[in-house]
């Protein structure tokens, strides 16, 4: 009984992790500029990797390697925002202005559609 629950919990976690990684990939392709893309790139690390690592921890059961998995997740949670911030900051230093819908009115709309194609 418990084994079955564990099995399905692992499956659900892996599928959710895949889902968020997929969404993140879609977001990177669809969103208009570097800042907006940084938002969604972090999804892969937080919930994508998070769910997958949780599944790994569950699958391994109670042993040393499980602790490593949790530690791994902890470090991912520290490094991911640092990297996202570094990218956004260097974009700001380079002088890239964030894309806003009002600013360019109709062109903004067409830009979004351009990304949709």
């Amino acid at each position: 009984m418990i084994e079955t629950i564990r099995f399905w919990a692992i499956v659900v976690l892996v599928v959710l992790g895949l889902f968020f990684t997929f969404v993140s990939a879609v977001g990177v392709l669809r969103l208009p500029d570097v800042y907006a893309r940084s938002h969604t790139a972090s999804q892969t690390d937080t919930l994508g990797a998070g769910m997958a690592l949780a599944a790994v921890a569950l699958a391994l059961g109670w042993q040393n390697a499980t602790i490593y998995t949790v530690l791994l997740l902890f470090f991912v949670f520290i490094t991911n925002p640092t990297a996202a911030h570094a990218i956004a900051r260097s974009a700001a230093e380079t002088g890239i202005e964030p894309w806003t819908p009002e600013e360019d009115g109709n062109t903004g709309q067409s830009q979004t559609e351009g990304e949709n194609r």
Partner: peptide
């Protein structure tokens, strides 16, 4: 700043002392 960046939808672009410049989606 790290927590703000970790939550998708908000991204810390700059952090000067107490002043955070945050990009929100």
């Amino acid at each position: 700043a790290n927590s703000i960046t970790l939550t998708p939808g908000t991204l810390t672009v700059r952090a000067n002392n107490q002043q955070l410049i945050v990009h929100s989606l």
